[in-house]
Design a protein around this nucleic acid. Structure first.
Lengths: 233, 233
DNA sequence: AATTCGTTTCGTTGTGCACCGAAGTGTCTC
DNA sequence: GAGACACTTCGGTGCACAACGAAACGAATT
């Protein structure tokens, strides 16, 4: 048969669990297997098979980083095609991204042991612009002494084997931020200095007034749009 | 769950048989159940369930005409979305329409007992423009005496109960042409007058030189692009 | 009324596959 | 090294559904 084979893509779309995963991925960020599994309400091993199928269909690309695997849409065309397809069904739209940005869920949060979100990405950018941090393929190289002064932080010296600064895929910005010992110590210092406070049980964080001043004065980071800590809580 | 529900559409696309049907329908014409069943290589009863599914997904609309049911894509947006989706898969394109138009399969053919194809649609247009034929909801009303002269045909008088001129969904043009006794007698006269000849075993027809003259002079129909009869056969 | 044809409904079979539990691999931390 | 942790592979279960035969329905023709 000479029939065009968009049934492969159709097959990939033809399952509710995969649909839920794709809706998460429509946000543009990269997600781990576990997160997508949770989004689809299935176990990780089921998510693995789903994601392989989406990969085979060319809708999703996956990238291994350490022990995590990050999945994201194969490109903007995919998102566009899916959006157009979803527009055929006059249901509620699927712009989770906007909802999430509007709702204060995760503009500022911790990622494992380090800082994540737009602020973390902006910090990474700022440090790179000042030449304190350089990207070298899949890793970061930091001028340690200068980082101290740039951040006003006294970081413990590197213990050795573990890379001092690693890039970590940021959920919201779909770009890398600083992980590893350096990221961990930055977050610790920010907490101890009272720059950040936990918002609830989850990983969400709030910026305090001194924290906003510190990040803005030291690195020129934009802090106006971030969620600030108020006395209400 | 608040997840968007494009899994319904995805489900509809997620089957090879339905994909084959949709590829046929991408041509823009309306197809009967049986034709789509044949295109998908399944039995008509299987095609029925597939088509209901496509209907529920909002991809296809169906219209009953006599004992036939005509199915076509719900609208141009559907075709566009499918095309964009198919473009994600870098396989061979699905433009059957163009192939079929380029290949001389069915520019001019008989439909049951009457004439079909672009020429038939153009004829219907021309007769309506001259006020000889009027559309009245789901049927045609013809000024019989004037039709005679306009076509240079002597049509037998209407037998009674059966509507003299009925609209019939044209495959190629996705628009109606003239069926019923009127359409039948027009085709008969065209054959007897040597205006048209059969091309092979199928319903394909060829236009002869006198036929081209007749259709062009009497109704101003465009005949240049239609398949002409030559001595080769 | 009988026949033919296109379509649909029903009942059944068979298969594909989503799902999970258990176990295995690779990576990171202590 | 041991112990977490993220992910994958394997095996098995259960369900959804594509497919067809048989039969019913409706429209058109005789």
């Amino acid at each position: 048969m000479v029939t065009p084979r968009f049934d492969i893509i159709g097959q990939a779309l033809g399952d509710a669990s995969r649909t839920r995963m794709l809706c998460e991925l429509m946000e543009g960020r990269a997600f781990t297997n576990k997160e997508l599994a949770s989004a689809a309400s299935v176990t990780p091993q089921t998510a693995t098979t789903h994601l392989r199928l989406l990969q085979d269909a060319g809708l999703v690309v996956s990238e291994k980083r350490g022990r995590c695997v990050f999945h994201r849409l194969a490109g903007p065309e995919v998102a566009q095609a899916l959006e157009q397809l979803a527009a055929l069904a006059p249901r509620d739209s699927l712009h989770r991204a906007q909802k999430r940005k509007a709702g204060g869920l995760a503009q500022l949060r911790s990622c494992y042991d380090h800082l994540a979100g737009p602020l973390a990405v902006a910090m990474t950018d700022a440090l790179q612009n000042r030449g304190v941090l350089q990207r070298d393929g899949g890793r970061f190289v930091a001028q340690e002494s200068e980082v101290w002064t740039a951040l006003g932080v006294t970081l413990a010296p590197d213990k050795g084997a573990r890379p001092f600064a690693r890039p970590c895929m940021d959920w919201t910005e779909r770009r890398d931020h600083i992980a590893g010992p350096m990221g961990q110590q930055i977050l610790n210092h920010a907490k101890e200095a009272g720059w950040l406070r936990r918002a609830g049980q989850n990983r969400e964080l709030l910026l305090t007034a001194p924290g906003a001043r510190a990040f803005h004065q030291m690195l020129g980071l934009p802090v106006a749009d971030l969620p600030h800590f108020t006395q209400e809580a």
